[in-house]
Design a protein around this nucleic acid. Sequence first.
DNA 1: AATAAATAGTGACATAAGTCACAATATCTC
DNA 2: GAGATATTGTGACTTATGTCACTATTTATT
Lengths: 235, 235
Amino acid sequence: MQRLEVAMVKRLPQYYQILNKMKQHGQEYISSEHFARLLNVDPSLVRRDLSCLATGIQKLGYPVRLTMERIGQLLGMRNTKEAFLAGAGSLGRALMAYSGLKEYGLKITAAFDADPAKAGEIVGGVKVLPAEKLADLMSRMNISIGIIAVPADTAQGVADVMVGAGALAIWNFAPMTLQVPGNVIVRNENLAAGYMLLSYELEQNLSRRSESIDEKHVNEQAAGEQALPQGERNT
Amino acid sequence: MQRLEVAMVKRLPQYYQILNKMKQHGQEYISSEHFARLLNVDPSLVRRDLSCLATGIQKLGYPVRLTMERIGQLLGMRNTKEAFLAGAGSLGRALMAYSGLKEYGLKITAAFDADPAKAGEIVGGVKVLPAEKLADLMSRMNISIGIIAVPADTAQGVADVMVGAGALAIWNFAPMTLQVPGNVIVRNENLAAGYMLLSYELEQNLSRRSESIDEKHVNEQAAGEQALPQGERNT
DNA sequence: AATAAATAGTGACATAAGTCACAATATCTC
DNA sequence: GAGATATTGTGACTTATGTCACTATTTATT
């Protein structure tokens, strides 16, 4: 009964990051219970997720190194991938400077910006080039990942250029959904949408809180601290 | 049959962004069909999601302004919320400079950094203050949102301080899951995890591609371009 | 006024995801 | 080496999510 589901794959990076931390701390094993506490999920879910890796040892838990290796392999961390970044604004520069990505196998080879004044800048070891050069270089260098960090209104155009130049995957930071051919992968990192979800939950929490205050007015018996079992909301 | 589910709420920000774009283009109505095409989902799912807003008009679609208003209200966009930002590194500065967030009701009131050299800097109209002042100011100013843009190893400590100072919600950009009391909302914007998912899908696509090449070797009849109906993968 | 056409809304169904409970098993202790 | 214990793996079940097919309604057309 292999359940290699979407939801499970989405949790793999989190297991990976936890394992990485454990490794740095010199931990040898970690139990599903421990994973579950850190991620605010059910331990049985962790076991189900990791069962396909065939790496758990009863009474001990999951060996940190081996499990991390297996997940890393599944996620394609083994071989470094090169990417081109479009947009050297503040977000683009933050990505260039984000050295942590190397650890996960992503190398930003070059950045591109429509503003000629930015050409020549170097951030985090990445050089900014004129936007016109993107298409040609991308296809000639056979770069398969494009990162979009340009304003929403130019994002689709950039995506089209990248796809035209042979991009197989696009990591999109513009706050909008891109239209691409079916064989191209898109991953949206929509920060504004992320904030909206936070805002929604906060709103819900506040109104629930004031409700419970109302209830107190009506019924003095009402339970005070209603620490609802909500845990953390992730992706 | 009210279905106000988690999955649906996650799509609301996307509808909102599309409606915003339509409004700017002067569009009056938008159909479920149109939404569906832009988001790569089933039209009936859009109708189900929006049905609770009671705003659709048959034969015309959904009125852009009214629907946007309703979703905005649900998501809590009506009232601006203030937030404190911890970490004035490149990502923190990108957030300070990201003016688009104002549009969604988020105002970063101040930033804090452990590096004293950064104190006094102003980015995007936001001033950087010494980290020591965070707790006191946060509780005195009654700020309920904390944004964490510090390295992973200090993130939990910052979260603890914020929660201690009365934070009700944390927008976390550190690549790890935070431990917070049950009544505090956490939204993780884990970029590294996002990249890992992209990498996974790319890996899958590539191996599927090479499989189909192998098949061609075995069976010359095999269909060439297998543009699998994958659409876009979001959150 | 009648008809056509587009499109929302929704019940019934299908599939995905998560939870529970328990058997199986490896390690540790005495 | 026997028993206790922690911990995995998984079948059965429950709940959430998405799809399909159809009805109802509104506007446009002749």
